[in-house]
């Protein structure tokens, strides 16, 4: 029932998908441009140097020799590549400070973009909450500015935590993909398929686990008006119906993967413009419905229809 109601809520608030899409396109363009500028200003001396050009032309020459079968170039390649790499290493050593600052700048842009995307999710969740709680439609912009403070505080804590969790889960997936097959007998392609399946399963399970743990955090801040710390405390202690929520998120994660891959493949990527923001909106709807159900709150599922109330028996009249 929760899954179905989440789907209904997503369909009811479908305009949020387009708002989120527009927001993500604008912020994506802004952060891409800023990252481009940082890299250009930081690394222009390296990319414009003779050593860099020598190395890139060497790589091009290698592939040309490989396709034409130029044995002379291929036999001398190791020596020339070694010399070019040494020169490049020396150049990189001279510009280590600008490289380090560029990396810091790119990381800062990445974290900032996640931060702003998270604040937008907060706003979408707030508009959905108004729909569930009072059957009202709130404007995205007013929800955004109403929640920018709370959302910012939440993102400051959530983004680093999620970043660490994602890195750890990706490391575990890497382990599943590369090390588990070595423990198995060699069955050729079947081993690769098995390890790929295992990796995907692990990835989906890790994401479902993360979503289950943070499930009540944002809704507690928006629905119950709790502080960021109180919301975190509530989501940590929200042991009730853990298995049910985990199962819901697991199925949701699989559905999201299938829908995105299918749309991506059959529309040559253009369908992802709709399905990616739709996936985020759907996950937010699930968080909200789960919170309302877990805390026993009533909510609107339609005009004059409230979930949680006893339904009147059918009349014969």
């Amino acid at each position: 029932m929760r899954f179905k109601r989440s789907v209904n809520l997503t369909a009811d608030c479908f305009s949020s998908v387009f708002k989120l899409l527009l927001y993500r396109i604008v912020t994506g363009v802004i952060f891409f441009s800023l990252t481009y500028v940082i890299l250009h200003l930081g690394l222009s001396e390296i990319t414009g140097s003779a050593q860099f050009h020598a190395l890139t032309s060497l790589v091009g020459e290698f592939f040309r020799a490989l396709t034409t079968g130029d044995v002379d170039v291929l036999s001398a390649f190791q020596e020339t590549a070694h010399a070019a790499l040494l020169d490049m290493g020396e150049l990189l050593g001279e510009h280590i400070a600008s490289i380090a600052w560029s990396i810091v700048g790119v990381c800062a842009m990445y974290l900032l973009s996640r931060f702003f995307n998270g604040v937008a999710q907060f706003a979408v969740l707030d508009t959905m909450n108004d729909r569930l709680g009072s059957y009202a439609r709130t404007r995205f912009s007013s929800a955004f500015f109403r929640n920018v403070g709370k959302g910012a505080l939440y993102q400051v804590v959530y983004v680093p935590l999620a970043f660490v969790y994602d890195v750890l889960s990706l490391s575990a997936c890497w382990f599943f993909f590369f090390f588990i097959p070595s423990l198995l007998p060699s069955w050729g392609a079947l081993t690769v398929v098995f390890s790929l399946s295992l990796t995907l399963t692990a990835l989906v399970c890790f994401q479902a686990l993360k979503l289950t743990f943070i499930s009540a955090w944002m809704p507690a801040m928006i629905v119950a008006g709790k502080s960021m710390a109180a919301g975190l405390k509530e989501t940590a202690h929200c042991g009730r119906s853990f298995g049910r929520r985990f199962a819901g998120y697991l199925v949701a994660a699989y559905c999201i993967v299938v829908v995105n891959v299918c749309f991506g493949l059959f529309t040559v990527g253009s369908g992802l413009l709709i399905t990616v923001p739709l996936s985020f909106v759907f996950l937010l709807a699930m968080q909200l419905i789960n919170y309302y159900e877990t805390t026993g709150r009533k909510y609107f599922v339609g005009y004059n229809r409230i979930a949680g109330e006893k339904e009147e028996p059918d009349s014969l009249e």
Binding site: V29, I30, F32, S33, L34, Y36, V37, H40
Partner: peptide, 13 residues
């Protein structure tokens, strides 16, 4: 100004 300049700089490529 920073955002607009960054975008115009990317467009100039």
């Amino acid at each position: 100004a920073i955002i607009l300049s960054a975008i115009l700089f990317v467009l100039s490529a």
